Simulated scan of single mutants.
Amino acid sequence: MEEVYKFLKENPVFYVATMDGDQPRVRPFGVVALFEGKLYLQTGNVKPVYKQMTANPKIELCTTSKDGAKWLRVAATVVHDGRVEARRHMLDENPELRKLYSEEDGVGEVLYLKDATATFYSFTAAPKTVKF
Rank of each mutant, 00 (worst) to 15 (best):
R98I: 02
V84L: 14
R73V: 15
S102I: 04
H89R: 10
V4Q: 12
D115L: 05
A86L: 11
N94H: 00
K38S: 12
V84I: 14
T124H: 13
A55S: 11
V13L: 13
G82Q: 03
A118E: 07
N56G: 09
T124K: 15
E36T: 04
N56R: 11
V31F: 05
L72S: 11
E96R: 09
S122F: 12
R73Y: 09
R27H: 06
R25K: 12
E60A: 13
Q42H: 09
E2T: 15
H89C: 13
K6A: 09
W71A: 07
W71I: 02
G108M: 10
K38A: 14
Y15S: 07
V78N: 04
E93K: 15
K6Y: 05
S122K: 07
A17P: 00
E85D: 12
K70I: 05
T54D: 04
T43L: 01
G82I: 05
D92I: 09
A69Q: 13
C62L: 09
A33D: 11
H89D: 10
I59P: 06
V13C: 04
S65Y: 01
L34I: 14
V13I: 15
Y101I: 08
P24N: 10
F35N: 13
W71D: 01
F132V: 04
A55G: 11
A86S: 15
